[in-house]
Amino acid sequence: MRRRQFLRVAVLSAGVWGVGSLAGCGSQEGSASGSRSITSASEFSTALPVPPLLEAARNGDISHYSMRLQAGTSSIVPAGPSTTWGINGPFLGPTLRLKQGEKLRVDVKNDLPETTSLHWHGMRVPADADGGPHSEIAPGETWSPEWTVDQPAATLWYHPHPHGKTESHVYKGLGGFIIVDDTEEPTEFPHEYGVDDFPVIIQDKSFDESGELVEANRAGVGMLGNTILTNGTHGAHIEVGAQRIRLRLLNGSTARTYCLGLTEDRTFELIATDGGRLAAPLQLDRILLSPGERADLNEGDTVRLRSFAHDLGV
């Protein structure tokens, strides 16, 4: 029988900072103004939810995906439920897994009360498929971009990008992963989605006494939440066998930067960043992620992923 292990993936420490410019990670824990976590080290009681893979219908040689932007209700903190936004669900969205060379069309329907958009962050797409502020989707309307995947394997993400409303719409819960696969992926990399290959979006949110998500604690560059979530959950863990796992980390916060590492200063392998796979794994004990940045980690032990203080250089 294989020994079961736990990887605790909530980002615990109050040693996280929201900054506009970045410097190197430090080795000491610290506190940031307006930052705290309501999750203690002993409260990892929730299994990390893994976003479902978005299924495609086939129309000739084109993969046809459907995404619905919608409002809903989510139970995130014990104080009570919160009004949230999501894609094909009440909070966050499914993972769009694509192959290099794949032709696709995505029907994006806006069932929200506000005009928004959906941007494919990191994808090489034609200008009319980019989903920036020039491609707004009014309430009740559907936008249907088409493109061919023309890039090597990478971990990307999608999020709204309406003019003047991007921060608010991301904060409410709109966003999700895009995984691009190619035929060059080393066979030794973990590759089974949700089994040894996990997408982890890290975000900070603030809640009122009733558990409602609130937009508060602005600190120059944007909102700094007082509760750290992973995949929309606080206090989450992953139970895996005695095996190597891959964490596809995404900083989905709107302003906060994280200096991430493992407990006991254990090292991990960095195998990919925003631009895709590295030529060779890089041994690290810290990685700094600013909003929107991604990193793929290869780890083979039972540890806790946490955030450490880092030197802002000021």
Rank of each mutant, 00 (worst) to 15 (best):
R97C: 02
Q243S: 07
L224Q: 09
I245W: 06
A154E: 00
N110T: 14
G225H: 09
V221A: 04
G60K: 05
T155M: 06
D301I: 02
L7H: 05
G122L: 02
L284A: 14
V149H: 10
R68Q: 15
D204N: 13
M123P: 05
E192D: 13
E212Q: 12
R3K: 07
A32I: 04
G252A: 08
R105T: 10
H234E: 00
L260F: 02
D130E: 12
V170F: 01
T155E: 10
A47N: 12
Q70M: 12
N251A: 12
P81C: 08
S40F: 15
T187G: 11
H191R: 11
G122W: 08
A236L: 03
T166L: 06
T254R: 07
G164T: 02
V77H: 03
G89R: 04
S42W: 09
G86S: 03
H161N: 11
H169G: 01
I62V: 11
G194S: 12
Y171D: 00
Y193Q: 03
F189R: 09
G132R: 03
G235M: 10
F6R: 11
T39R: 14
R248A: 05
R266Q: 06
I287P: 06
V200G: 15
R58Y: 06
D196C: 03
T39K: 04
T227Q: 06
Q70Y: 05
T263N: 15
G131M: 08
G72F: 13
S27V: 07
M223Y: 08
T46A: 02
N110C: 12
H121F: 06
A32E: 02
A279G: 10
G222E: 04
S75L: 07
A79S: 14
T83Y: 14
R4W: 11
S253A: 07
S168L: 15
R304G: 00
I38W: 04
C25K: 13
G292V: 01
S63W: 05
R2D: 14
E192R: 13
L22T: 14
T115N: 09
M67C: 04
T257Q: 11
G86M: 02
N59W: 12
D61R: 03
E55H: 07
P291H: 11
G30V: 06
S31P: 00
L250F: 15
M223T: 11
S290K: 13
E239M: 13
T155D: 10
G176V: 01
P281W: 05
V77E: 01
V180Y: 15
S42H: 14
T142F: 03
V149F: 01
T233Y: 05
W157V: 12
F6W: 06
P126H: 09
L297K: 01
